[in-house]
């Protein structure tokens, strides 16, 4: 699914545009816990989150997440937008709730990453 399609399906606003609109996003996930993002994040994925602080962007960067979707129309801090620009993360805002944002993308064919187990050396 492309970034453009994600924005359309979520009827969202692209706040920071760090990738070409037709770039492919292979998977999606959702979390409000940063450690969860670090544990299940996969390269190039889109992350749905209710958090808006700059750490969300930093965490995305470290986990290899390409696109961060801020749900429920939350307005991010200026620092969050700046950091997204600086670290090459695409930032999208949507009016949908976490549940609906995920549901709409999943229904449209965006994959998750399947069951995740935390084990030592499971990389």
């Amino acid at each position: 699914m492309t970034i453009k399609e994600i924005a359309e399906i979520l009827e969202g606003v692209i706040l920071v545009n760090s990738h070409p609109p037709d770039e492919d996003v292979p998977r999606g996930g959702a979390a409000d816990l940063m450690s969860d993002v670090l544990a299940f994040g996969t390269e190039g994925m889109v992350l749905m989150t209710g958090l808006t602080n700059p750490q969300v962007v930093r965490t995305a960067e470290m986990a290899g997440v390409s696109v961060v979707v801020l749900v429920r129309d939350k307005k991010p801090a200026v620092e969050t937008i700046e950091l997204a620009r600086e670290s090459g993360i695409t930032l999208i805002r949507t009016g949908y709730t976490m549940f609906e944002a995920c549901g709409r993308l999943y229904k449209a064919g965006l994959a998750g990453r399947g069951p995740v187990k935390i084990e030592n050396g499971s990389w």
Binding site: D32, L33, M34, S35, D36, L38, A39, T49, L51, N53, Q55, V56, T59, I118, E119, N120, G121, S122, W123
Partner: peptide, 28 residues
């Protein structure tokens, strides 16, 4: 132990303090 954390509420509100950090490090 995964899940153990002494992080205060305000830290948890920021999305940190789930007690998974050290487990994550070990796994990676």
């Amino acid at each position: 132990k995964p899940g153990f954390s002494t992080a205060p509420q305000w830290i948890r509100d920021m999305g940190f303090g789930a007690g998974m950090g050290l487990a994550n490090i070990k796994r990676c």
